[in-house]
Nucleic acid binder design. Structure first.
Length: 629
DNA sequence: CATACAATAT
DNA sequence: GATATTGTAT
């Protein structure tokens, strides 16, 4: 699916500190060599340090790169706990595991804040615990899922509170009142307030234990945290391949069973379906911001290539907004992802973006990066063959590709396209007024696809790895070197089409952040303010053929041909035949000036979220970040 | 009594 | 593994 497996693998960097070089070597080797359950889930890199000083100096360099520290207790100079202390002082709260052959040091270690204590020699099961620890910690640094059950087969000891916090154990008795005593979580004797199966008549289910004894099955509570892990698992394996077993393996929560996951998955799927049928109702809490920085250059057209720098930033005012549950019956939606994560952007109810007053476009200086909070996974590690070499920047089909569905019929949608905006980058585009500018010419290196003259920008990665793209907006805006009077491609201007350094990446650290340069790209807020936007009424230069059904030339298969603005490219075989998106909807036809005071459809309405308007895969993808209530 | 939720049956 | 049904708590 949308996530590149390579980048989804959790990379755990463990530092091992021990003054015994032999042990250090063995330990490092064991950690490295031993495969975790599924190597596609986690990779371990071991950094060895021979004493505390070396450990600290390594940390100075690699501070953000180390996930877990395993240190011997007895070391010359500074012992393991002193090292831990120092680490905490200098680098904050990094998880430290202390090991020693002196089991008397166990209590001291735990008291002093070691995450756990491992007696030497290290048993294989203990080693496993280290993996689990690292994995869990990496995935959720807030808490460690660690239960008594999880521990009983090893000598690893963890601090008391770690075992006993019910939030961390995530296990409760059937009766909440019982669970108020958190220490009963792992107890099997306290059943005084658990209603028994025997008290139920006509029970059809088979008792799971001794029939004479009432079953005391634990009920898993899907806390936000646990659900979040579940979602991570789904992201990792892909929605289409997410089955209980795989999810369970990824989650690696000791007490969870496949059945637990299956049950939850069923619920989740029901949620997805519900949303697909009815639309999504979102509550997006707190501050939000959308920003786009574009490095502007002169048009790619002809041989001009004059760098200029203009930066725009568009941010959304701080506002909270909530949808009314009544409209869709999905009112309990809550956002589980960290709201600072950029991809929540996708989840914004998009009628919101029509409130021009909420946007504050302004120029902020110069630079060369573009940061778009988008739903990403846009690392083109594969040849974009399914779409005949051309993919739009924010093309739904691209997501479809990675999800596993062919994108052949999806069409070439892009940055400028309203239907895309609805779900993905709409806010940005709307804010910057891209959509109103309509047609833009994009060149590609593929001679069969080297011009795109449907109404919206597009971009073509033509090889794996970093890609390049360009937009020709300047031409429109300055009314010169216009792409509607284009010159055939030459090598010279092909060069210009190969723009700079669009690096798309996605890793767990910076999921969904896109960093790139945009060249030959220009937008104009003032232009945005003029006229409405629909597929045939763009804000165009005076000499642009704005009449409906007027044609303008494009280059196709090396020859110049024409395209009907209303109907898309005349050669639907080569270029995509997707009709211009519906833009005369309430959503997109709302002029920021004229309609400023107009009553924007309320979020309670729900009609604004017609799933058919949405790029479905994107849409579903965005749901991956949502709770399913 | 209806609903939400998770376990359990099919 | 997917889906339907049941038990339990609210």
């Amino acid at each position: 699916m949308a996530f590149n497996n390579q980048s989804s693998v959790l990379r755990i960097n463990v530092m091992v500190v021990d003054d015994d070089p032999v042990f250090l070597q063995i330990m490092s080797r064991r950690l490295e060599m031993s495969k975790y359950r599924d190597p596609s889930i986690m990779e371990i890199t071991v950094i060895a340090a021979r004493d505390s000083i070396e450990a600290l100096s390594t940390l100075k360099v690699q501070r953000n790169n180390i996930d877990l520290i395993i240190t011997d207790y007895y070391m010359p100079g500074m012992n393991g706990l002193q090292l831990k202390e120092k680490i905490t002082q200098e680098f904050g709260n990094l998880p430290v595991i202390v090991m020693s052959s002196d089991t008397n040091k166990e209590q001291e270690s735990l008291t002093c804040g070691a995450m756990c204590f491992i007696p030497k020699p290290i048993k294989a099961t203990d080693l496993t615990k280290i993996y689990q620890f690292a994995l869990t910690y990496k995935r959720n640094s807030k808490s460690i899922l660690w239960t008594e059950d999880n521990n009983k087969d090893t000598n690893v000891s963890v601090p008391q509170q770690m075992q006993l916090l019910p939030e961390q154990a995530n296990v409760q008795r059937t009766k909440k009142k019982c669970a108020s005593d958190s220490r009963s979580v792992n107890s099997t004797t306290n059943d005084s307030c658990v209603s028994t199966d025997a008290s139920r008549k006509n029970r059809k289910r088979k008792p799971t234990g001794d029939p004479s004894q009432p079953s005391k099955k634990r009920k898993v509570t899907w806390t936000d945290q646990l659900h979040d892990l579940f979602l991570q698992a789904i992201r990792h394996v892909g929605l289409d391949k997410a089955v209980p077993k795989k999810i369970l393996a990824f989650m690696n929560v000791p007490y969870l069973t496949r059945e637990n996951v299956a049950s939850h998955l069923q619920k989740y799927r029901i949620f997805l379906k519900k949303v697909a049928d009815q639309g999504l109702n979102l509550a997006l809490p707190g501050t939000d911001s959308i920003f786009l920085h574009a490095h502007i250059r002169e048009p790619y057209y002809n041989n001009y290539y004059t760098p200029s720098t203009s930066w725009y930033e568009t941010s959304l005012n701080n506002r909270s907004f909530y949808s009314n549950p009544a409209g869709l019956g999905l009112g309990q939606s809550r956002l589980l992802s960290n709201i600072r994560e950029p991809f929540r952007f996708n989840q914004m109810p998009y009628n919101y973006m029509n409130r021009s007053s909420t946007y504050e476009p302004h120029r902020i200086g110069s630079g060369s990066n573009l940061t778009l909070p988008i739903q990403s996974n846009l690392s083109f590690s594969n040849q974009p063959s399914l779409n005949e070499g051309r993919r739009s920047f924010f093309e739904p089909s691209m997501v479809a590709n990675t999800i596993g569905q062919p994108s052949l019929n999806e069409g070439r949608r892009s940055f400028f396209e309203p239907s895309m905006m609805t779900n993905t980058i709409g806010q940005t585009s709307q804010v910057l007024g891209f959509e109103q500018h309509g047609p833009s010419a994009i060149g590609g290196n593929n001679i069969n696809n080297n011009m795109m003259m449907s109404s919206y920008g597009s971009f073509t990665p033509n090889q794996p790895g970093p890609s390049h793209f360009s937009f020709g907006m300047q031409s429109f805006l300055n009314n010169e070197n216009t792409p509607y009077n284009p010159q055939p491609h030459t090598n010279a201007n092909l060069e210009l089409l190969e723009l700079e350094n669009l690096n798309l990446y996605d890793d767990l650290g910076k999921t969904n952040e896109l960093s790139c340069n945009i060249s030959n790209f220009l937008f104009d807020h003032n232009k945005q303010q003029q006229g409405g936007a629909d597929s045939t009424n763009f804000d165009l230069p005076a000499n642009f053929p704005t009449e409906q059904n007027q044609i303008f030339p494009v280059q196709d298969d090396g020859n110049w041909t024409t395209v009907n603005m209303n109907q898309g490219h005349s050669n639907g075989e080569t270029l995509n035949n997707l009709p211009p998106p519906e833009t005369n909807s309430t959503i997109f036809n709302m002029n920021p000036i004229n309609n400023q005071e107009q009553d924007v459809p309320d979020l309670t309405d729900g009609s604004f979220l017609n799933p058919q308007d949405l790029a479905f895969e994107d849409f579903v993808n965005s749901l991956l970040n949502n709770d399913m209530n």
